[in-house]
Simulated scan of single mutants.
Amino acid sequence: MKKILIIGIVASGKTTFAKRLSQKFSLPWYELDSIVHHNTATGRYKRSAEEQFEIIKEIDIKGAWIFEGTDRDSYQCLYQMADTIIFLDTPLWKRKVRILTRFIKQKLGIEKCHYKPDIMMLKMMYKWTRDFEQSRNSFDAKLNRYNEKVIRLRDSNNLDVTKGTRLS
């Protein structure tokens, strides 16, 4: 495993899992949200799909990596580039609890974030979760195209990726 794509919906544990996997295998990791949304001195803006692709290519040229994020059209290239795709399929109930817990921690200043943690964002996270569940079959069909390199994990606390379910 030298090029790992960790994919999952909001609050599935992607960032925490990526950090831990990065330490275990000494691989650099990148949050795809930071590639999509660029922070500058004047604020945060969304990069174009072309800009995102260029950044991903620059990182890929350097060698091994871990990318983590939700599924977006703008970085579908990572499915081909990765030698391992880990889908964090955390149970719905756990994701819902994590969304609320994260929101509370952000509002209290305990946890940092790159966006404004307001009620609108909280509602959006639950909406994205609902939308994902409604379109899960199409996402699973996409993963099936890469079945030889996909590992489905239901527990993001377990770094032993051999305990995941291989799609086939």
Rank of each mutant, 00 (worst) to 15 (best):
K2A: 05
K2I: 06
K2V: 09
K3G: 03
K3Q: 11
K3S: 08
I4W: 11
I4E: 07
I6K: 05
I7F: 04
G8T: 09
G8F: 13
V10N: 11
V10E: 07
V10P: 05
A11I: 12
G13C: 14
G13Y: 14
G13D: 13
G13A: 13
K14Q: 10
T15D: 12
F17T: 06
K19H: 13
L21N: 15
S22L: 14
S26D: 13
L27F: 13
L27C: 13
Y30Q: 01
E31Q: 06
D33F: 02
S34N: 09
S34Y: 01
S34L: 11
I35K: 01
V36I: 04
V36W: 02
H38N: 03
N39W: 01
N39M: 00
T40K: 00
T40G: 02
T40M: 01
A41F: 00
G43Q: 00
G43V: 04
R44I: 07
Y45I: 02
Y45N: 00
K46D: 02
K46N: 01
R47H: 00
E50M: 02
E50G: 01
Q52G: 10
Q52I: 12
Q52L: 08
K57N: 08
K57R: 13
I59C: 02
D60Q: 05
I61K: 04
K62R: 06
G63E: 14
E68L: 07
E68H: 07
G69Y: 07
D73G: 11
S74D: 06
S74Q: 07
Q76I: 02
C77K: 04
C77D: 02
Q80D: 07
D83I: 06
D83E: 05
T84N: 07
I86W: 11
F87M: 07
L88R: 00
D89Y: 03
T90P: 11
T90M: 14
P91A: 10
L92F: 04
W93S: 03
W93A: 11
K94S: 08
R95E: 03
V97P: 00
R98P: 02
R98H: 04
I99R: 03
L100A: 10
L100G: 02
T101D: 11
R102G: 09
F103Y: 14
F103L: 01
I104D: 04
K107V: 09
K107M: 06
L108M: 03
L108N: 01
E111G: 00
C113D: 06
H114T: 02
Y115E: 00
Y115M: 11
K116V: 14
P117M: 08
D118Y: 05
I119Y: 13
M120E: 10
M120P: 00
L122V: 07
K123R: 14
K123F: 08
M124T: 13
M125H: 13
T129I: 11
Q134K: 15
S135Q: 12
F139A: 14
D140F: 15
D140S: 15
A141S: 15
L143E: 10
L143T: 12
N144H: 14
N144P: 08
N147R: 12
N147Q: 15
E148T: 10
V150N: 06
R152Q: 03
D155T: 04
D155Y: 09
S156C: 08
L159Q: 01
V161H: 10
K163C: 05
